[in-house]
Design a protein around this nucleic acid. Structure first.
Lengths: 224, 224, 224, 224
DNA sequence: CATGAATGAGTGTTCATTCAT
DNA sequence: GATGAATGAACACTCATTCAT
């Protein structure tokens, strides 16, 4: 949890946050709820547990949130809204601006290493988002609007810029190019968690470099 | 459910199936259970519902399956064991053998169109597998041993063969090449279900061709 | 039940009682539970019945007692702890002190008449204790530590004192002397409940006098 | 169970037994049922278990015995009818006849040692009888008529004979004399199972001798 | 506004008994 | 007569939600 503390402070109390006006009590409840959701999943978490962890009475919870589901939405949705965009991933934007003039290989390497660290940090959160989105349309919608569509837009713009600069091929739809890049990297992250044995830092970097090289130059033998 | 009927018949009653010896009543229970699991997820499904849907008394369920969890495993694990391998994906093997001499572009296209149809068919099943694997180690293990590792082996061998033939670059680890291919295609499938608006058959084929082209020849502008 | 009311008040609410702090609702639940336990036995009693008899919802029971078994222990163990010792049998101690200088015959008579009244009063309780001790080791242990061993110690000391005073033979192990006394009297009580027809107050006293006389002077014909 | 085999053969198949006409299948069911009753108690035993242990189908049980309770009665009641009387304890009668001319001390010793062995052998049976008699009036009645009253009659007659011979005091009701003897010895047996640490064979004999001596000559100091 | 005791519908599971074969 | 699959009422226990204080 402690690892998330900073993240949450940012999301929940930052300027423009949907919870700017959150009372300390509400904040405690959400913090406690999230902590347990991440550990045991939503449905295995009881309101009683949340109340204890938040240091309030069980009834108090329902004074602030009409149902248990509301707590889920109130914890997850704001976090999703900041998963990409002005929040943490703002650093992504900044990374890109800072390194605008580096060759593609190096920019990709920087981005991917940054994203890898980020994803590994918020893995439990992603798991809950993924699971509960299947049962709560509100979450699915927020996931779409708060994460997926912005990410899509972000990557499309990035790809298009590089196409315009002549660094990426222009005979191909930008969405196809973007999707391949994301797919290749996303699956790399997934395979890391599936096969945790491989994973020395140095190996990681080489693996990412390999991915980038294939993405940029193709898998085909140069003989052909 | 009806869409799964044929699939289940195949998995559960085919020769050598773990459920060859399934009684009709057991089959009804599993069919009913699966139907509801796919709709509402495992934990939101009550044994009472399953009993009603299967047309048996609640007690009957527990005569055939010791616990509700056993029903989950008995529905999901056999299906997983056939997700890849001698079952449905046997067609994958056959596809490869049949088209061994075609150029890579065409083999990839055939495989991907086949897999796309298959995955879209079993999407609700994949959802349940994905969600419940988080809570039931038996499922996670079956997923790993029955699907993930065999798939990995299968694709590695395929890639290595093509490397040996000189069709794919040999200066790169086969696992990196395989992972990129799978990632690129997996994410294509995911994005199809996320953005269902795009998806005319003809468009699909073009999109897949684009993916393959990027994978083989790279995303880099040829000017460079 | 009414006959136990006074007894329970004593045990559960007396000073130093393990239930001094019992809320009224808890007390109602325990009272209701005990009433039914005494009538039908533990396992034939349902939590639903207890709830109704206590005038609370079934869920309320489990807010106060984690399991049905806990209710059993919470009713029985405190009662056992007072079966002998500072509680009801405190009167035993006092009886002995008060009548220290009376001849053995008279002391025995006083004790036995007192115990007889006590045992007859708590007969249904003894039945439950006896039966359930076979299934619940906690009860067996409490019975041993709370009733049997203290009783043994108590009687041994009494016998030894009388041996020292020269009132009881010293050529015999005190435990043998004590055991005979208790056995003789316990079986008298048991036979009273087995053959309830005999049992006029006057007859009782004569019977007890007979027992005492045999114990003290022997069953052998004086001719020998 | 093997230790009971002989006993059961005697009870159930002996001449005049209520089960003389028992079919082999019924006998198997009863044998299996008793075995499990003795191990786990009546209510913890399922008809399914009995069926398996007896090697018959569950339905078959109910063809021979209307309810599970009937099985209990059919196992326990015949055994009770032979607990005393012409059955095993017939040996008691014989013991008395054989040793008619021995002094009381020696007769008592022989009887008590015999009974002690017998009781220890059938302890699990006694436990079931004791527990279930509380819930099944039929058992209570059979216990009374089959064990308690015959035993009472038996001991009364024995005592009366010895009174007539002048070996036991005649100034005392025979029932009081008998009850004391039985109580003293019964409690000795109970205390043996409560405090199992004491119990070397030699010690046992000495303890029994002590009991007999007190019973015959009294606990009072001879000084008085 | 905060509390936490009370609720009661709902849960998965058991098992003596029935009955079509 | 024997079977064993089917039954369904009953069970102890859970937990999100309510509401009097």
């Amino acid at each position: 949890m402690d690892e998330f503390e900073e993240l949450f402070n940012y999301h929940w109390q930052g300027e423009g946050s949907p919870y700017e006006q959150l009372s300390e009590k509400q904040w405690n409840i959400l913090k406690a709820a999230l902590k347990i959701f991440l550990e045991k999943g939503y449905s295995a978490t009881t309101t009683n547990e949340i109340a204890h962890a938040a240091g309030v009475a069980e009834g108090t919870i329902f004074r602030h949130f009409k149902t248990k589901k509301d707590i889920l939405l109130a914890t997850i949705i704001p976090l999703m809204q900041n998963l990409v965009g002005p929040g943490v991933s703002g650093s992504l934007q900044e990374l890109l601006v800072e390194n605008e003039d580096l060759p593609l290989e190096e920019v990709f390497l920087i981005i991917m290493e940054d994203r890898q660290k980020h994803v590994q940090r918020i893995l439990p959160l992603l798991r809950v988002i993924w699971v509960e989105s299947n049962y709560h349309p509100e979450l699915k919608e927020a996931l779409m609007n708060g994460v997926i569509l912005p990410s899509k837009k972000f990557f499309l713009r990035f790809i298009e810029q590089r196409q315009e600069r002549g660094e990426l091929r222009q005979d191909m739809d930008s969405w196809v190019l973007a999707r391949s890049l994301v797919g290749v990297f996303a699956f790399y992250l997934i395979s890391l968690s599936l096969f945790p044995d491989t994973g020395e830092r140095q190996q990681n970097r080489e693996a990412i470099k390999g991915i980038i090289q294939i993405y940029l130059d193709g898998a085909r033998s140069s003989r052909e």
